[in-house]
């Protein structure tokens, strides 16, 4: 790690101000930032530690929804009884992420800022070309080892997969990011790589994530997060799906459906086409499987990651059907 200075922020405003200084970065749980600093990807001149700020770690839940303070830690949110009962997909996405230790460190806000696991991105000393690190430098991943790379939302500039779990569930449940007073849908907070893969989030200098708001809904209450991976635990998703379901009073017709995919796209991937195809229809296995294929419309593989195109719709279908089985 290069040398840097350390500033312990005394207020959120002071933190935001300090973070606008050249080379300054906000430090929360550190599970991404310190890791990337050791890889030489992050090269901060100053870290502004916000983990000691008070009042930013709230977990508040009422009829309208949940507000998760930016500094609420993943493990605490995962284990929160009201989150488990009203937003099961959120709890499930969280407890299946990383390890218990990392979940005790990582914050909700920081988790949204998690970076890709693309091995070329993470290895600047050996692979100079990475458009995500240095705009216009090229992409080392294309033509390389790609089993873990994205099949959705890619561009010629970048195929790096977004590895997070929580944001996938947040996107499915129409959650909003609070950047101080500004509100933005989580779905819009994450940007497609396009020609600027270095710009990952719709956050501007001087802004700081302060909270995440998840609106209550019947679909949120009946939701799940299904994560498929080689290893049983402590691994990023090969493919995952966050699904929320609301049925009509007949118990079989789909009134509301939320579907988002993880592990397969360059950002948390909302599958509106699947939702549209099934809303108003009777929940029935064949219809669900057929509609789930729409989740990977437009997918492009890069060799070893082709299986994700096959796998992802099956994960979606399984998650929807599983929700259909719950009373």
């Amino acid at each position: 790690m290069r040398d840097f200075s350390y500033l312990r922020a005394t207020s959120a405003d002071a933190a935001r101000q300090a973070a606008t200084l050249p080379g300054a970065m906000l430090l929360a749980g550190g599970t991404t930032l310190i890791d990337l600093a050791k890889c030489g990807v992050a090269e901060p001149d100053m870290l502004v530690d916000i983990t000691h700020l008070r009042g930013l770690d709230r977990i508040e839940i009422d009829e309208r929804g949940a507000i998760l303070g930016a500094l609420a830690r993943m493990g605490h949110v995962a284990d929160h009884d009201d989150i488990k009962s009203r937003f099961p997909a959120i709890s499930e996405a969280l407890w299946q992420a990383a390890s218990a230790q990392i979940r005790n460190m990582a914050t909700i806000g920081g988790n949204l800022m998690q970076r890709t696991r693309c091995p070329y991105f993470r290895d600047p000393s050996n692979f100079a070309a990475c458009n995500k690190r240095v705009s216009g430098s090229g992409c080392s991943a294309i033509g390389g080892v790609t089993r873990g790379h994205a099949v959705l939302g890619t561009s010629e500039a970048c195929i790096a997969m977004y590895p997070g779990d929580l944001a996938t569930a947040l996107v499915a449940l129409d959650a909003t990011v609070h950047l101080g007073d500004r509100r933005i849908l989580v779905d819009d907070f994450f940007l497609l790589p396009g020609t600027t893969p270095d710009k990952e989030h719709a956050i501007e200098p001087g802004e700081m994530i302060t909270a995440i708001e998840i609106p209550s809904s019947a679909a949120a209450r009946r939701s799940t997060y299904l994560k498929i991976r080689d290893r049983q635990s402590y691994e990023f998703a090969a493919a995952s799906a966050a699904v929320g379901l609301e049925l009509e009073s007949d118990g079989r017709t789909i009134r509301d459906l939320r579907v988002a995919l993880g592990g397969v796209a360059t950002k948390p991937w909302r599958a509106h086409a699947v939702e549209a195809a099934l809303k108003g229809k009777v929940l029935e296995p064949n219809a669900v499987r057929t509609a789930s294929l729409l989740a990977v419309e437009g997918a492009v593989d890069h060799g070893a990651n082709r299986y994700k195109i096959e796998l992802a719709p099956r994960v979606v279908a399984r998650a929807i059907l599983k929700m259909g089985e719950t009373a």
Binding site: Y6, G30, D49, H52, G75, I102, N104
Partner: peptide
């Protein structure tokens, strides 16, 4: 009282 990873924690962060 909570388990964390010391390798990703700055010593300075642990003050207090």
């Amino acid at each position: 009282g909570e388990r964390v990873l010391a390798c990703l924690t700055l010593a300075a962060q642990a003050e207090g």
